[in-house]
């Protein structure tokens, strides 16, 4: 087991390099560069000044050389400075990461808390009216684009009803609040972004849970459990659920990347000061070091999530032992 964890952790390194190479190339292939956004449209800036600027940023070298230099710095955990404000990228990300983690962990929590009971109840009452209505709602949720859903939520709950704030995480007046009030305010502000973030994966996961449960309920050992005279409660929640949850653990590894990439859009819409919005802003500004920093951190978090899912799987399923 320890062997497996070490091996898997080491595997993260080549995957990080591969993913960052692809991102690096795509980011640099996009038309325009940092000099064009600030000086390209200004007739008073000469071509030679732009060339000098490019040289300063190292943008005149071939892409692969630039990538090599970048990789060399990253290897020493130096993420470089932002092109926009010259602050270290690592500081910028460190400021933003907690907000993203808060949003996504809250969403993950909501997804699992809701999806598992929905999946179980739909499977136990398969093809009933409840199951059919649930199926329609979930497919609608699955098909809804999250940016559109976010705007609907903002319009209805934020604007029409005025129940929830529509933007931001920590308003300026939060420093006048007591600790308890400030937590309450934060939770209040989490509702709409978390609802948006959860929607897609919630629909996804509860369908998985339903089919996993249906599959398990057909198994021979369920019939054995019934033949033993166990109550239906024990049959469903002890014998079936434990087996049905196994695949659901690994599906977390599919949800995590979806959540993190969703953050780019959702954080921007809700003015959430997280890493996703930082990434979005850095892309719009050709701020390569920041973009790459955000991608690296997000990739690392995703790979870490996958590793945790695999380890959890070995813990919950007695048949699986990684050698």
């Amino acid at each position: 087991m320890l062997n497996f964890i070490i091996r898997r952790t080491l595997l993260i390194v080549p995957m990080l390099i591969g993913i960052s190479l692809i991102t690096f190339v795509i980011a640099h292939l996009a038309p325009g560069d940092p000099t064009s956004i600030r000086y390209g449209l200004n007739p008073e800036v000469s071509q030679s000044a732009r060339a000098k600027l490019k040289e300063m940023y190292g943008l005149d070298k071939p892409i692969i050389v630039q990538f090599g230099l970048w990789l060399k710095r990253i290897a020493m955990l130096d993420f470089g400075n932002s092109f926009i404000d010259d602050r270290p990228v690592i500081h910028k990300i460190a400021e933003r990461l907690p907000a993203t983690l808060l949003l996504n962990i809250a969403a993950l929590f909501v997804i699992y808390i809701l999806a598992i009971p929905i999946g179980i109840s739909s499977a136990v009452k398969a093809n009933s009216k409840y199951d059919r209505v649930m199926t329609i709602i979930l497919f609608a949720g699955y098909a809804t684009p999250s940016f559109w859903f976010a705007l609907l939520l903002i319009w209805f709950f934020g604007f029409n009803l005025g129940w929830f704030p529509i933007s931001g995480m920590r308003p300026w007046y939060v420093e006048y609040f007591t600790f308890f009030e400030s937590i309450k305010d934060l939770l209040w502000r989490l509702v709409l972004p978390v609802a948006t973030t959860s929607l897609l994966s919630l629909a996804n996961l509860s369908r998985y849970m339903r089919s996993s449960m249906l599959e398990v309920l057909r198994q021979d050992y369920i019939r054995t459990a019934r033949a033993k005279g166990l109550s239906e409660y024990l049959v469903v929640y002890k014998h079936a659920l434990k087996n049905a949850l196994l695949p659901i653990v690994t599906i977390a590894s599919m949800i995590l990347p979806a959540l993190l990439s969703g953050s780019f859009i959702i954080e921007t819409i809700f003015g959430w000061p997280g890493m996703g919005r930082l990434g979005y802003e850095s892309i719009m500004n050709y701020d390569y070091p920041t973009t790459m920093g955000v991608v690296i951190i997000a990739t690392f978090l995703t790979l870490l999530g996958l590793l945790i899912a695999d380890i959890t799987y070995a813990i919950v399923d007695p048949r699986i032992r990684y050698e």
Partner: peptide, 16 residues
């Protein structure tokens, strides 16, 4: 009334 089923491979719950 008790039952012994045909397939001992699948008739026992694998995670208990």
């Amino acid at each position: 009334i008790s039952v012994v089923f045909q397939e001992p491979l699948t008739a026992l719950n694998p995670v208990l």
